[in-house]
């Protein structure tokens, strides 16, 4: 799975030179590479969508835990309600030690140790985040996948059946929403969840374990899984 930032980043960066924040030299071009640590879970730039993590477009100045339709941990939502907004400083502190910054938040990212790495990354993020997220959640999918997904999204899945079927999924995808080597599927937007499954079925995304499962699932079963998984909260 390779999802990159969606804006023409290199074009923008051509006009950026190294610059200083405080006493520190920052290098946003390095920051782009460092974003690889985040890109499995986050998109940023024009058309960015929620994935495992919320999209980071327009994140500067945004209240923590405030994107509609993304299932945040109650910890992060509470922090937002208590006034936490994202700035270069708060993002820096968050990604240094995500577990410690807001206790009980569910970003399963180990942390970025080096101060220089963090400032380079944040400097890049500041330039790339445009505050123009995707209007159409299906924008990137092939029309075939969109068609399949639409049929399932119209169905009322049986969450009890979904719960039983989920037994096969949670051997790999932890029910707590933790991700260690396999992405979390707890709290994904429903469209994204269903579309992903069809992407494995149609080889738009390639992963044998996922494909092997999905080829055995009927539309009714996918709807049941979607009803169950999008109805539970990450811990």
């Amino acid at each position: 799975m390779q999802i990159e930032a969606t804006a023409p980043i290199s074009a923008i960066l051509l006009f950026l030179s190294s610059m200083t924040v405080g006493a520190q030299e920052v290098d946003p071009i390095r920051g782009e590479k460092l974003f690889k640590a985040c890109s499995n879970c986050h998109e940023v730039g024009e058309g960015a969508k929620n994935k495992v993590g919320p999209h980071l477009d327009g994140v500067f100045g945004r209240t923590a835990g405030s994107i509609d339709g993304f299932k945040y941990s109650s910890a992060l939502k509470r922090a937002g309600e208590e006034g936490l907004t994202w700035s270069a400083e708060s993002i820096d502190a968050y990604i240094e030690k995500p577990r410690d910054f807001v206790k009980g938040n569910r970003m399963s990212y180990r942390g970025m140790e080096k101060a220089q790495d963090r400032s380079d990354l944040v400097a890049w993020l500041e330039r790339i985040s445009l505050n123009s997220p995707s209007a159409d959640i299906n924008a990137e999918s092939t029309s075939e996948v969109v068609g399949f997904a639409a049929a399932v999204l119209e169905m009322d899945g049986d969450p009890d059946y979904g719960e039983y079927l989920s037994g096969d999924c949670v051997t790999c995808h932890q029910i707590s929403g933790q991700a260690d080597g396999i992405p979390s599927i707890i709290g994904l937007p429903k469209e994204y969840f269903v579309r992903s499954l069809f992407e494995y079925k149609t080889n738009v995304r390639q992963n044998e374990v996922m494909k092997n499962r999905v080829v055995n699932l009927s539309n009714e079963e996918i709807a049941a899984l979607a009803a169950y998984f999008t109805g539970i909260q990450p811990q």
Binding site: V170, T171, I175, G181, I182, V209
Partner: peptide, 14 residues
Amino acid sequence: YEESEGWYKGITAD
């Protein structure tokens, strides 16, 4: 390999 590490965490939690 990374998938197998993820699976180990997953199955032991399960």
